[in-house]
Amino acid sequence: MAAETGTPTTLTLKSNDDELFSVAESAAILSVTIRNMVEDGCAGGVIPLDNVDGKTLASVITYMNGISAIPADEEKKKSYRDKFLSDKDFETLADMVLAANYLNMSCLMDAVSAKIAQVMEKKSVGWVRRKFGIENDYTPEEEAAVKEEHKWTFEGVETDDDN
């Protein structure tokens, strides 16, 4: 990749709202999408990331820099990830999972997915529908049938509250 002399070690990433970010190549290639572009020689100028907005990209770059600064110590990496995600609200997490998916960053994808799952587990059906933007397209009969089919999963669950 960076074997030739003169290959830049800093990459410039462009978000879909035209913000530019500089990031060390060694940190950026945590993203397989970016790594592939670098390997294909497409990283000479600016790398456009059409599916990530500036705010999310800034956050992802903070993560890239933070995690790549930690040597091979899974425990420390895990605690960095936990700390990094601890203050993110659901909307930010949603943006992050989209970005991680697009950038093909499995470690961030896993951490964010686990966090979203953790939040979902405690919430009502109504809350999840709203946050995920899910339209309830069941008829009342269908909904009752699904509920009956998986009755065991609803034991002790109140589904109507909005918390």
């Binding site: 979902m120 587990e121 059906v125 999840v128 529908r129 995920f132 899910i134 339209e135 309830n136 397209d137 069941y138 909904e143 699904v146 509920k147 089919e149 998986h150 065991w152 999963t153 609803f154 669950v157 589904t159």
Partner: peptide, 12 residues
């Protein structure tokens, strides 16, 4: 148990 429960969210 929770992932099965998400079947209630909608058709998809």
């Amino acid at each position: 148990k929770f992932s099965v429960r998400t079947s209630i969210l909608g058709q998809r």
